[in-house]
Design a protein around this nucleic acid. Structure first.
Lengths: 195, 195
DNA sequence: GGCTAATTGGACCGACCGGTCTATATAATC
DNA sequence: GATTATATAGACCGGTCGGTCCAATTAGCC
């Protein structure tokens, strides 16, 4: 379809590996086998090696999230409903993978230190963008700027922390319960005023 | 003070490493250097090697959390206040370590797969215990069982997801904001009734 | 078709990984 | 003080890690 296929296959393999086992959890050999590519190709497309590929995969994931978000916000009028739907999708994916596929970025995020500068930078960008986009949606639907920003951070925390708990528990219950708690509260709290 | 010191030093070194870099992120050599012990000692005290040491460290961390929790709940009447204080402590620790020390268990939690059975089991136990203890405290202060359990899961998610975001951002702002959002809502929501 | 650049294929490398093993030292026990 | 567990010390091992390098192939272009 597009020009180079190998490059994309490498990125896809890395993206999937990041979601399932994290950066340190995959070896190059495994990656190359999944992608069906030899080592030469990797270092041709990504001279920076493993970490450059990781950055490319992270960016790819970021773009994917962007698309899904805008699609979701288009479909649902209420941003809270969109977020609820987003959580449902994540949960299905987690269950369907026998609790192996959580947040595609969380594991790398925790693995990466201040070294790995580029990886950190990419992650930082994406998380900030997600919070911003979320906050803007909330503001467009009547939330005050301050509380919208706060709620955006809380929602991302719910997603990350909920998936983490569900994964460890081998059950979707923790995420489900956490989500219930949050959505029940938002329902009781006046949606659109200040504070 | 106690009998064997080397064993404890190994556990402490592993516990710190787990918090900063995760299980795959540390090598035995680094661990041994920090603990000031030779390889023989490791395999004497932990015949199961790295992963057995990891389990011991995880259990150690679990016990520490237990203690801190009961202390916190003793000090504060309102469990919400206790949790707020808990978050403050976590935040200070994160900042003081230049955003390297987040949740001591989160990284291993995401790194570990269904293989690593013992590690998973230990993590599962601890997370479940934390949610339970938290839920019980909330129930003792008037929350209905159902909503208390849900809120407990949400709080753990806030802690985990907030720390993750803060770490990536290199700023405590995301966690602070997420916490503000949650605590403002709990304040507006009737504390002790059902649903 | 001939030339050039892009890509693939994989042998090869040193470093380090977790783990084993045996020799020595240090306590504990009688 | 001799004997026996217990613990320390580190040389050593095979395997795998990420990475380099070059030969072979393929695709693009005139």
């Amino acid at each position: 379809m597009t020009k180079t296929n190998t490059r994309d296959k490498l990125i896809a393999a890395m993206a999937d590996a990041l979601q399932r086992k994290g950066l340190h959890g995959v070896g190059l050999s495994e990656l190359l086998e999944i992608a069906g590519a030899p080592k030469g190709s990797l270092y041709h497309h990504f001279p920076g090696g493993k970490s450059e590929l990781a950055v490319a995969a992270i960016d790819h994931i970021g773009r994917r999230i962007d698309e899904q978000f805008s699609q979701l916000f288009r479909r649902h009028g209420d941003p809270l409903a969109a977020l609820h739907s987003w959580l449902q999708t994540a949960l299905s994916q987690l269950e369907d993978s026998r609790f192996e596929r959580g947040c595609p970025l969380a594991t790398v995020a925790l693995e990466s230190g201040p070294e790995d500068a580029e990886i950190r930078a990419a992650l930082q960008r994406i998380f900030a963008a997600v919070r911003l986009s979320l906050s803007q949606q909330l503001q467009q639907h009547g939330h005050a700027p301050e509380s919208a920003t706060n709620l955006a951070a809380l929602f991302v925390a719910l997603y990350e922390g909920g998936l983490l708990q569900a994964r460890v528990a081998g059950s979707s219950e923790p995420l489900r319960r956490a989500a219930d708690a949050l959505f029940n509260m938002t329902r009781q709290t006046p949606g659109g005023d200040a504070r």
